[in-house]
Amino acid sequence: MKQKKNWLTGDGKCSSSTMGGLKSPDVEIHVMGSAMEVVLVTGLDCQFMFTEIIRMFREEGAEVVNASFSIQDNTVFHTLHSKLGETSAPEDEAARISEKLKKFVYSSVS
């Protein structure tokens, strides 16, 4: 009940336990020129991360062109495709966004 309450209130934390259907989040980031793909794998208790990552992209000026998720057993697979802003150095922008995303995902584990 406490985990459900935390998830519903969006306290920003996910369980690090793999017992009881809970899974620590993991993120993979792929950059191809001005395109960025993020694959986020979470447990059922971390679904708030999906919308938070979309918000981060928008804050950084990147356009989310496609976002989807699928659930298999107790694991949620989120995929986001984005187009980076029209900057002269997309590599720097990609590195900054990647670092911010990783920091958010891995600091969200309680």
Score class of each variant (00 low, 15 high):
T75S: 11
E93N: 13
F57L: 09
S70K: 12
E99M: 09
N66W: 10
A89F: 02
G85W: 01
A62Q: 05
K83I: 14
H81E: 10
E63H: 11
V65D: 05
I53T: 11
L84K: 09
K83T: 15
F69D: 03
E63S: 12
R55N: 14
F77R: 12
A67R: 04
L80N: 02
D73M: 07
T79C: 04
E63I: 07
H81G: 00
A67N: 07
N66P: 03
V64N: 07
A62V: 05
T79N: 02
A95T: 05
D92Y: 02
N66I: 08
R58M: 11
A95W: 00
E59S: 13
V76F: 00
H81K: 10
F77M: 08
R55I: 09
A95C: 03
I53L: 15
S98V: 12
E60W: 14
A67Q: 03
F57C: 05
E99Q: 12
E59I: 06
Q72G: 11
I54R: 15
A95N: 03
S82A: 15
M56S: 13
E99S: 14
D73G: 07
L84T: 03
A94T: 05
S82P: 04
A67V: 10
I54S: 10
F69K: 05
R58N: 15
D92A: 14
A94Y: 01
S70N: 12
R58C: 03
H81R: 03
R58P: 00
I53D: 02
E59H: 14
G61S: 10
D73E: 15
H81W: 08
S68M: 07
S68W: 00
R96D: 13
E59W: 11
A67F: 01
D73R: 15
G85L: 08
E59C: 06
D92K: 13
E99N: 14
E59L: 13
V64G: 08
V76L: 02
E59M: 12
E91P: 02
G61K: 01
